[in-house]
Simulated scan of single mutants.
Amino acid sequence: MKTGLFKNKKWLKVLVTTLTLTLGMSLFVGCGSDKKQPAAEKKDLKKVSIQIDGAAVPYYAPLYIAKEKGYFAEQGIDVEFYYAAAAEIVKNVAAGNVEFGFPNADSVITAKTQDIPVKVVHTTYQNGLGSAIFKTSSGIKTPADFKGKKIAVTSLGSPNYIQLQIMLKSAGLSLDDVKVEVIGTGAIVNALVTDQVDAIVFSMLRTIELKNQGVDVSEIRSDDFLPSHGNVLIASEKLTKENPELVKGFTTALNKGIQYIIDGNAEEAVKLAVEKYAPSFKGKEAVTTDIINEVFVPYLWQSENTKKNGLGAADMAKWNKSIEVLNEYKVIDKTFDASELIYEAK
């Protein structure tokens, strides 16, 4: 004999039908939220492009983090990354082929003297990367010790060649007091390791790489004598005037990416960058993390200026000094005030 709920077959039929319909609707709604909503959200994002100096490397991790962590999306932006030489980046940004660029600062200063209409919207690297690197056993401690030494640069038109001249000048020396060797980018570090030269003027990132390889080297940083900058974020003058909200959104997301790494997440950021963007660095994650923690976090992304004015803030006096020196050494044929180059949000 049936009891309880099962006594009423009609009621049972209604219950089963209701449960079936409810479950079906839940599954339908669930599928809709999983598959359709993200597509709708992505459709609402504004697609923008940034062209980055050189190739994909983990040192561009703040940009990659900003994309992967959704910081750009928070600002309504979907970013695509492209890569090129600095001079080409400046031209493409000015022409509107890409919305943003991330070239070295010297190329932007040069472009300004050629009336190429771009603005620096974020002074990402507060200092330059140049360094004179030498074996600790060489006896070199100050620029005065360069006298009579053989020193390599990558070309006589490179920023490092100017940096060498300024370091020599600080010690009352000139190019006549040293032997300058021109060695290509791919061979210059090995020339130091194999004692073909006494010092190289190159990127300070190589100092940590060499130490990691067991080579005892020291350095003199160029910024101690020549105020400069590394990579900076640029946009066209037209974009800064017509869409300042986009510029603000991009720089806000970039700052959030930088801050995430500063807050102790360099290892995670490097791992993400290598896995998704820079696979050629696989196996070099540890030394790359060291470089970010030792150079980028305390020296490139941060400064006394950023402590006062925030990440990416421009030090106008330092920019003007860079312009002045590049003019003095004939890299640019005229000078101008940094306020003409630096964009300030209103």
Score class of each variant (00 low, 15 high):
residue 322 S to N: 08
residue 223 D to M: 06
residue 246 L to H: 02
residue 208 I to V: 11
residue 222 S to V: 07
residue 109 I to V: 09
residue 180 V to Q: 11
residue 234 I to C: 01
residue 206 R to G: 01
residue 200 I to K: 00
residue 271 K to C: 15
residue 226 L to K: 05
residue 210 L to M: 13
residue 76 G to N: 06
residue 112 K to G: 08
residue 290 D to Y: 04
residue 334 K to D: 06
residue 123 T to A: 14
residue 302 Q to V: 13
residue 73 A to Y: 10
residue 295 V to N: 15
residue 342 I to W: 04
residue 84 A to W: 02
residue 76 G to V: 05
residue 57 V to E: 15
residue 3 T to V: 12
residue 142 T to M: 07
residue 31 C to P: 15
residue 22 T to S: 12
residue 119 K to Q: 10
residue 306 T to D: 06
residue 103 P to V: 11
residue 201 V to H: 03
residue 152 A to K: 04
residue 5 L to R: 06
residue 80 E to S: 07
residue 180 V to Y: 11
residue 104 N to W: 00
residue 103 P to E: 04
residue 158 S to F: 02
residue 252 T to C: 14
residue 337 D to V: 08
residue 174 S to C: 09
residue 284 K to F: 12
residue 307 K to Y: 08
residue 302 Q to C: 13
residue 152 A to Y: 12
residue 194 T to R: 01
residue 343 Y to I: 05
residue 305 N to M: 04
residue 346 K to I: 06
residue 12 L to M: 10
residue 194 T to P: 00
residue 303 S to M: 07
residue 226 L to C: 03
residue 50 I to E: 00
residue 283 G to T: 02
residue 5 L to K: 04
residue 58 P to S: 15
residue 232 V to I: 15
residue 173 L to Q: 15
residue 175 L to S: 08
residue 51 Q to V: 09
residue 105 A to H: 02
residue 224 D to H: 14
residue 191 A to W: 02
residue 116 I to M: 14
residue 28 F to N: 10
residue 24 G to P: 01
residue 24 G to I: 01
residue 105 A to N: 03
residue 250 F to S: 10
residue 88 E to M: 12
